[in-house]
């Protein structure tokens, strides 16, 4: 599930960076604060928008495929077949997938964030005259450890949620092909909602810690 997600995340991240910078420019210009662009964009993307958008994309991509895969294994009795051949299907199928999703998401988010910043830098470079070097200098100046750490920690939870819900829905899917569709669909819907709830909790906790 890795490399296709990578492409998806990169494209999304890039466009996010472009659009976000284009949209913010006029407002910042009004206040004569365009030079704040790199720090503003980097903080908002790294802290919040990057993790949430990319987790949502992955819920659609990874969560649904886990749901559909386990769902169809369930309805075609492949899971039963594993069990009668003495393998614990839970360990073999569920644990591995949840682990993979949990480890994968933080990496995808970091890549997505980075590509988004490149997108933003390109706009600043063409519309304004900020060199890439200057742009990224300002980015690293603006970003602090206290931005990166909580943002990265919460992406582990996002990944875990995506894997868990996908597996749960797939593993418990009802008989028939309709059951598989439903499993993958409700995996996405439920995960997306859960991601916002988790994000809220993460922000809440971070707020307590740092203020």
């Amino acid at each position: 599930m890795g490399n296709k997600s990578l492409l998806l995340v990169s494209v999304t991240g890039f466009i996010l960076g472009l659009v976000f910078t284009l949209q913010s420019r006029p407002t910042l210009m009004e206040f004569g604060a365009v030079s704040w662009m790199p720090s503003m964009i980097s903080i908002s993307i790294v802290r919040e928008i990057g993790p949430v958008i990319i987790a949502l994309i992955c819920a659609g991509r990874i969560g649904s495929s886990i749901g559909a895969e386990l769902g169809s294994m369930k309805v075609t009795e492949q899971i039963d077949a594993m069990e009668v051949s003495g393998t614990n299907p839970f360990k073999f199928l569920v644990v591995t997938r949840i682990l993979a999703a949990t480890c994968m998401l933080p990496i995808l988010v970091i890549i997505g964030d980075f590509v988004a910043l490149i997108g933003s830098a390109i706009i600043e470079n063409t519309k304004g005259d900020v060199s890439f070097l200057l742009y990224f200098n300002q980015v690293f100046e603006a970003l602090e450890f206290t931005d990166l750490l909580p943002a990265t920690i919460k992406t582990f939870f996002f990944g875990f949620a995506i894997g868990l819900v996908g597996c749960f829905k797939g593993y418990n899917s009802k008989k028939g092909t309709a059951g598989v569709g439903k499993a993958s669909n409700s995996a996405v819907v439920f995960t997306s909602m859960l991601l916002f709830v988790l994000d809220f909790i993460a922000v809440f906790i971070t707020d307590i810690f740092y203020n």
């Binding site: 895969e69 169809s72 294994m73 075609t76 009795e77 492949q78 039963d80 077949a81 594993m82 009668v84 051949s85 003495g86 393998t87």
Partner: peptide, 26 residues
């Protein structure tokens, strides 16, 4: 269960594995 062979109604081959891997699984 190692003493029981089970042929499922719909074959239930693991569709993400090759024939070889299917047979090696048990």
């Amino acid at each position: 269960r190692t003493d029981i062979g089970f042929l499922f109604q719909g074959s239930a081959l693991y569709d993400s594995m090759t024939v070889r891997e299917n047979l090696e699984f048990p």
